[in-house]
């Protein structure tokens, strides 16, 4: 099943298969990241800059800032959730748990 993912309304939210799934304004805990000097960043998502499926995962680069140190910018790729390959249902991750941003294993678009 092909997964359609879009960031819409100026990056306000992420749509997965035409259903609004992930919003700005959540706080994400980021570990092993280079976003800011904090060991565990407390990252406020202010806008989704880029979004792409990676297998069953839905990944995004997110603009925002760490509310501990104030650093702002765009994260590396974060996994927002996973699409059930059988049903197509999206299962979001819990933003408040710890996430490790990283490079994508696949290109967002064909070369």
């Amino acid at each position: 099943m092909t997964t359609a993912v879009h960031q819409l309304d100026d990056g306000a939210w992420v749509s997965v298969n035409d259903s609004r799934e992930v919003n700005v304004s959540d706080l994400w805990r980021l570990a092993r990241h280079d976003f800011c000097p904090c060991r565990l960043a407390d990252f406020l998502a202010e806008g989704f800059v880029e979004v792409a499926p990676d297998g069953a995962d839905v990944d995004a680069r997110v603009a925002g800032q760490c509310i501990q140190c104030g650093a702002s910018g765009v994260t590396d790729w974060l996994t927002l959730g996973r699409v059930d390959p059988e049903t197509g249902a999206f299962r979001p991750v819990v933003p408040e748990s710890t996430h490790v941003p990283g490079r994508r294993s696949r290109l967002a678009a064909p070369p």
Binding site: G11, A12, V24, E46
Partner: peptide, 10 residues
């Protein structure tokens, strides 16, 4: 604001 708007934080 968040009453109706997708983008708002507060």
């Amino acid at each position: 604001g968040t009453e109706y708007c997708s983008l708002s934080i507060v």
